[in-house]
């Protein structure tokens, strides 16, 4: 537990002191939200469009934070230091959990901005907030293994959108549908949330199981 805590704390420290998360992650989230907000302010925008914008901005702003973190460790020789000290599934889990926190922070920037610009009903906010709380870790878990794979095989990085699509697309569709329901009707289908949680947990478990095999090769 002490070593896992140390891994988590290291991830957060390194991310906040590095330029990528703050400069690219938060920067992109603010620029995209503000651009869309200015462009669409005053026009009637449907709930499904608002939900799509919210999740697409969150996904793009956070899409490479995890794969970049894995790749950086390989480039700087710290990945091997970790391999010598702890099993790689622990590293994978710590990185994925820390990334879930970063995705949530990015969503905390995007969500209020979009709500402000696009005039989201205040009564819908608690439910949408709950979906953001569920959806951000889900996105991170789904991206985790693909991000790890990218760092192990640089030739794969060009294929990132192709590899990540089958994992991310169903999750994004469910998140958009549930969020648009919450915005329009003040409720959402519990089945969608079950699909979101199951898919993300399946992706996380698959990552934890497969990482040792990839390491072995």
């Amino acid at each position: 537990m002490r070593s896992f805590r140390a891994l988590l704390a290291k991830e957060i420290r390194v991310a906040f002191r590095g330029r990528h998360l703050v400069g690219v992650g938060f920067g992109l989230a603010i620029v995209l939200s503000a651009t869309l907000g200015f462009s669409l302010a005053g026009t009637k925008v449907g709930e499904r469009v608002i939900a799509s914008l919210l999740w697409i901005i969150v996904m793009f702003s956070s899409s490479d934070t995890l794969s970049r973190s894995f790749a950086k460790e390989e480039d700087e020789g710290t990945a091997d230091q970790l391999r010598l000290r702890v099993p790689m599934p622990s590293v994978f889990l710590a990185k994925t959990l820390a990334n879930a926190f970063f995705v949530l922070l990015i969503a905390c920037v995007v969500f209020p901005l979009l709500c402000f610009w696009l005039g989201v009903r205040l009564s819908a906010l608690p439910l949408v907030g709950l979906l953001v709380l569920i959806g951000c870790p889900a996105l991170s878990f789904a991206q985790g293994f693909v991000g790890y794979l990218m760092s192990r095989g640089r030739a794969l990085s060009a294929a990132y959108p192709v590899i990540v699509m089958p994992v991310i697309l169903p999750l994004l569709v469910c998140l958009v549908l549930a969020t648009s329901q919450a915005l329009a009707e003040g409720t959402f289908s519990i089945n969608l949330v079950v699909v979101i949680i199951s898919e993300s947990l399946a992706a996380l478990v698959a990552g934890l199981v497969l990482v040792p095999y990839i390491e072995e090769e």
Binding site: E76, G77, T78
Partner: peptide, 25 residues
């Protein structure tokens, strides 16, 4: 190989430390 973590230490030009963290950290 995967049962080794924690038993062998290594110092090599290929292995680095975290540049964002201090020597103490």
């Amino acid at each position: 190989r995967f049962q080794l973590p924690g038993r062998i230490a290594m110092c090599s030009p290929d292995l680095g430390l975290y540049k964002e963290m201090t020597v103490f950290e």
